[in-house]
């Protein structure tokens, strides 16, 4: 595919603006409209950049309120997540949609230069906007670069509740994202596409990581076993037995959930050894979200 937007940009633009409208004063709306008109008139990149930077001064940072129908309508871009955003962040994302993307090279250069001179909050807005940017195949390297960031809020913007990485990153970059999320203590259950993109190479990396943690006498995040479950073989199964017998209830539950995700016979037998846990899982009362809540 080779097209500007892989979703309905016009409707997303209208939706985001209607949310901004309901969450701002007429003064703010007037200013945003004014900026938009001037941009359309002149197409001047400098105005585009200055407005992007200036947005918080005019919009403030109140947290936006969303209606139930907003949440439904946001399915225009599955997984795109704006709950709890401050108004300036949403307005910045809306503003990015106002830049003409017809000239591919110019567009990419303009967005890249925003990244290159961005402050912390601008970086967060830019990375959160990844799923909505035009020419989506162009942002893979930028995303991989962002994963290397040491700024917690920037990492969060890429890793959590963001559908872009799962859709576009190659396996090596994806694995790096998940590994770094676990390494930096992120709530990994909020990574979009976590199960869909689970893969044996990632499982192996995480297995090695778990052994390093154990060697250091440090605990292992039980959500890690979610990514190993589907690939359980003899080697991984030895880990699962360890976790099952750790004496910690949450870890045992995580081991049970991992066993429930595989057809590997010994794992299924282990799970059958605890009918109570098995029932909790088949009844939908014990899920990975349960584990995530327990360790939160």
């Amino acid at each position: 595919m080779n097209e500007l937007y892989h979703y309905d940009r016009t409707r997303m633009d209208a939706l985001l603006y209607s949310i901004i409208e309901r969450n701002s004063s007429s003064q703010i709306q007037q200013w945003l409209q004014q900026q938009k008109d001037k941009l359309e008139e002149t197409g001047a990149l400098q105005r585009f950049n200055l407005t992007f930077t200036a947005i918080p001064r005019f919009t403030g940072k109140n947290v936006i309120q969303l209606s139930a129908s907003d949440l439904t309508a946001l399915a225009l871009m599955p997984g795109f997540f704006i709950q709890g955003y401050a108004l300036d962040k949403l307005a910045r994302i809306w503003w990015l949609l106002q830049l003409s993307a017809n000239d591919r090279e110019q567009y990419i250069q303009a967005i890249e230069s925003l990244f290159n001179a961005a402050d912390m909050n601008e970086l967060v807005a830019l990375y959160s906007a990844l799923p909505l940017l035009a020419w989506p195949e162009e942002w893979k390297l930028r995303t991989a670069e962002g994963i290397r960031s040491n700024i917690g809020s920037v990492q969060d913007a890429i890793m959590l509740n963001n559908p872009y990485p799962a859709s576009w990153l190659d396996e090596a970059a994806w694995n790096q994202l998940v590994m770094k999320a676990i390494f930096t203590d992120k709530p990994v259950h909020l990574i979009s596409g976590l199960d869909e993109r689970a893969n044996p190479r990632l499982a192996m990396v995480l297995h090695d990581y778990a052994h390093e943690r154990w060697a250091a006498g440090r605990p292992v995040n039980p959500l890690l076993w979610r990514l190993i479950g589907p690939f359980i073989d003899e080697v991984f199964f030895r880990d699962i037995i360890n976790v099952w017998n750790s004496g910690n209830d949450t870890e045992k539950e995580a081991a049970a959930l991992a066993c429930a995700a595989t057809t590997f016979k010994p794992a299924q037998e282990l799970l059958s050894g605890s009918p109570a846990l098995k029932q909790e899982i088949t009844g939908g009362r014990l899920t990975w979200d349960t584990i995530a809540r327990r360790i939160a």
Binding site: K61, V63, Q83, G84, Y85, A86, K89, N121, V124, G152, S153, D156, L160, N161, T184, D185, K186, P187, L190, A296
Partner: peptide, 14 residues
Amino acid sequence: EIDQSLKFNGSTVL
């Protein structure tokens, strides 16, 4: 916290 999404994401560091 200015941006509540930080809380949503349960960021430890912040």
